[in-house]
Simulated assay, not measured.
Amino acid sequence: MLKAAIFYMALAMVVGFAFARGGRDERLAAIAMLMAAAATPLLVQQQFAGPEAGVILVDIALFLALSAIAMQSTRFWPLWAAGFQLGAVVVHFASSRLPELIPAAYAETLVIWSYPVLAALLLGAVLEGARGHRQ
Protein backbone atom coordinates (compact mmCIF):
# COMPACT_ATOMS: atom_id res chain seq x y z
CA MET A 1 0.00 0.00 0.00
CA LEU A 2 2.81 2.41 0.88
CA LYS A 3 4.66 1.54 -2.33
CA ALA A 4 1.55 2.32 -4.37
CA ALA A 5 1.11 5.64 -2.56
CA ILE A 6 4.74 6.56 -3.26
CA PHE A 7 4.34 5.71 -6.94
CA TYR A 8 1.13 7.71 -7.31
CA MET A 9 2.69 10.70 -5.53
CA ALA A 10 5.70 10.52 -7.86
CA LEU A 11 3.38 10.20 -10.86
CA ALA A 12 1.33 13.20 -9.76
CA MET A 13 4.41 15.36 -9.23
CA VAL A 14 6.02 14.41 -12.56
CA VAL A 15 2.77 14.81 -14.51
CA GLY A 16 2.11 18.16 -12.84
CA PHE A 17 5.61 19.33 -13.69
CA ALA A 18 5.24 18.08 -17.28
CA PHE A 19 2.05 20.09 -17.70
CA ALA A 20 3.53 23.17 -16.04
CA ARG A 21 6.92 23.23 -17.73
CA GLY A 22 6.83 20.75 -20.59
CA GLY A 23 5.92 21.08 -24.20
CA ARG A 24 3.58 19.09 -26.39
CA ASP A 25 5.57 15.84 -26.19
CA GLU A 26 5.78 15.99 -22.41
CA ARG A 27 2.05 16.69 -22.05
CA LEU A 28 1.12 13.85 -24.41
CA ALA A 29 3.33 11.41 -22.53
CA ALA A 30 1.93 12.61 -19.21
CA ILE A 31 -1.61 11.97 -20.42
CA ALA A 32 -0.65 8.49 -21.65
CA MET A 33 1.01 7.67 -18.32
CA LEU A 34 -1.98 8.92 -16.35
CA MET A 35 -4.34 6.81 -18.43
CA ALA A 36 -2.17 3.72 -18.00
CA ALA A 37 -1.86 4.28 -14.24
CA ALA A 38 -5.63 4.71 -13.91
CA ALA A 39 -6.47 1.64 -16.01
CA THR A 40 -3.95 -0.80 -14.54
CA PRO A 41 -5.52 -1.40 -11.09
CA LEU A 42 -8.94 -1.83 -12.71
CA LEU A 43 -7.67 -4.63 -14.94
CA VAL A 44 -5.80 -6.79 -12.42
CA GLN A 45 -7.65 -10.09 -12.19
CA GLN A 46 -5.28 -12.68 -10.73
CA GLN A 47 -3.22 -10.51 -8.35
CA PHE A 48 -0.24 -11.26 -10.64
CA ALA A 49 -0.41 -15.03 -9.99
CA GLY A 50 -0.01 -15.36 -13.75
CA PRO A 51 0.11 -13.14 -16.80
CA GLU A 52 -2.37 -10.29 -16.41
CA ALA A 53 -3.95 -9.90 -19.87
CA GLY A 54 -5.50 -6.50 -19.16
CA VAL A 55 -2.31 -5.08 -17.68
CA ILE A 56 -0.32 -6.48 -20.61
CA LEU A 57 -2.59 -4.59 -23.02
CA VAL A 58 -2.23 -1.38 -21.02
CA ASP A 59 1.56 -1.69 -20.96
CA ILE A 60 1.71 -2.43 -24.69
CA ALA A 61 -0.57 0.55 -25.38
CA LEU A 62 1.68 2.81 -23.29
CA PHE A 63 4.73 1.48 -25.12
CA LEU A 64 3.08 2.22 -28.47
CA ALA A 65 2.04 5.72 -27.34
CA LEU A 66 5.55 6.54 -26.12
CA SER A 67 7.02 5.07 -29.32
CA ALA A 68 4.71 7.23 -31.44
CA ILE A 69 5.78 10.31 -29.47
CA ALA A 70 9.43 9.31 -29.94
CA MET A 71 9.01 8.84 -33.69
CA GLN A 72 7.74 12.38 -34.24
CA SER A 73 9.76 14.13 -31.55
CA THR A 74 12.98 16.05 -31.96
CA ARG A 75 13.87 15.23 -28.33
CA PHE A 76 15.75 12.19 -27.06
CA TRP A 77 13.83 11.47 -23.85
CA PRO A 78 10.75 9.85 -25.49
CA LEU A 79 13.00 7.19 -26.99
CA TRP A 80 14.35 6.41 -23.53
CA ALA A 81 10.85 6.36 -22.05
CA ALA A 82 9.64 3.96 -24.75
CA GLY A 83 12.68 1.76 -24.19
CA PHE A 84 12.07 1.61 -20.45
CA GLN A 85 8.41 0.80 -21.08
CA LEU A 86 9.50 -2.01 -23.37
CA GLY A 87 11.25 -3.45 -20.30
CA ALA A 88 7.86 -3.68 -18.58
CA VAL A 89 6.34 -5.40 -21.62
CA VAL A 90 9.16 -7.95 -21.60
CA VAL A 91 8.42 -8.72 -17.94
CA HIS A 92 4.93 -9.82 -18.94
CA PHE A 93 6.29 -12.21 -21.53
CA ALA A 94 8.81 -13.57 -19.03
CA SER A 95 5.99 -14.22 -16.58
CA SER A 96 4.15 -16.26 -19.19
CA ARG A 97 7.25 -18.39 -19.73
CA LEU A 98 7.95 -18.76 -15.98
CA PRO A 99 4.75 -19.96 -14.29
CA GLU A 100 6.65 -20.47 -11.04
CA LEU A 101 7.41 -16.74 -10.84
CA ILE A 102 6.30 -15.39 -7.49
CA PRO A 103 3.37 -12.95 -7.90
CA ALA A 104 5.07 -10.31 -5.75
CA ALA A 105 8.21 -10.48 -7.92
CA TYR A 106 6.13 -10.13 -11.09
CA ALA A 107 4.21 -7.11 -9.78
CA GLU A 108 7.25 -5.47 -8.22
CA THR A 109 9.31 -5.80 -11.40
CA LEU A 110 6.59 -3.99 -13.33
CA VAL A 111 6.61 -1.18 -10.78
CA ILE A 112 10.39 -0.93 -10.95
CA TRP A 113 10.21 -0.28 -14.72
CA SER A 114 7.68 2.51 -14.13
CA TYR A 115 10.19 4.74 -12.36
CA PRO A 116 12.67 5.10 -15.25
CA VAL A 117 9.74 5.96 -17.55
CA LEU A 118 8.73 8.70 -15.09
CA ALA A 119 12.35 9.86 -14.83
CA ALA A 120 12.60 10.17 -18.61
CA LEU A 121 9.44 12.31 -18.69
CA LEU A 122 10.73 14.45 -15.82
CA LEU A 123 14.02 14.99 -17.62
CA GLY A 124 12.16 15.96 -20.77
CA ALA A 125 10.03 18.47 -18.87
CA VAL A 126 13.08 19.92 -17.10
CA LEU A 127 14.95 20.35 -20.36
CA GLU A 128 11.92 21.81 -22.13
CA GLY A 129 11.37 24.20 -19.23
CA ALA A 130 15.02 25.24 -19.37
CA ARG A 131 14.57 26.14 -23.04
CA GLY A 132 12.14 28.77 -21.84
CA HIS A 133 9.26 28.07 -24.16
CA ARG A 134 6.65 25.47 -24.87
CA GLN A 135 5.88 23.79 -28.18
Rank of each mutant, 00 (worst) to 15 (best):
A68R: 13
G87W: 02
S114D: 10
L86T: 10
E108R: 13
P103C: 05
I102Q: 14
L110I: 08
L98F: 11
A81E: 05
A68W: 15
W80G: 08
Q72I: 03
A68S: 15
V89N: 04
Q72M: 06
L98I: 09
L110N: 04
L121C: 09
G83S: 13
H92N: 12
P116S: 06
W80D: 02
A94Y: 09
L101K: 08
V91R: 04
S114W: 09
I102M: 11
L123A: 12
P103L: 04
A104Q: 13
A82M: 03
W113E: 08
T74K: 06
V111K: 09
E108Y: 10
L110D: 02
V111S: 10
A82W: 00
L123K: 10
L110H: 04
A70M: 15
W77I: 01
P103E: 02
F93G: 09
L110Q: 09
G124P: 08
L101R: 11
S95C: 15
L86G: 10
P78M: 04
L118E: 03
A107H: 14
E100P: 01
E100M: 04
L86I: 14
L101G: 05
L98E: 13
G124R: 01
I69F: 15
W113M: 12
T109C: 14
Y115V: 14
S73L: 03
L118N: 00
A107T: 11
T74C: 08
R75Y: 04
S114V: 05
L86Q: 05
S114M: 13
S114A: 11
W77L: 03
A107I: 14
A125T: 00
L101D: 05
A94S: 06
G83C: 14
Q85F: 06
A119T: 14
Q85K: 11
S96D: 15
R97T: 09
L121S: 01
I69T: 07
P99S: 12
P116Y: 07
V89I: 10
F84N: 04
V90K: 02
F93N: 07
E108Q: 12
S114F: 06
I69P: 01
G83A: 11
L122D: 00
A104G: 07
V117M: 05
L121D: 00
A82D: 02
G83H: 04
F93W: 07
L79W: 05
A70Y: 05
A105N: 07
A70T: 10
P99D: 11
Y106W: 07
T109E: 15
A81G: 04
P116K: 09
I112P: 07
P103R: 05
P99H: 10
P99A: 11
L123G: 07
I69K: 07
W113H: 12
V117L: 08
A88D: 07
R75C: 03
V117P: 01
P99F: 10
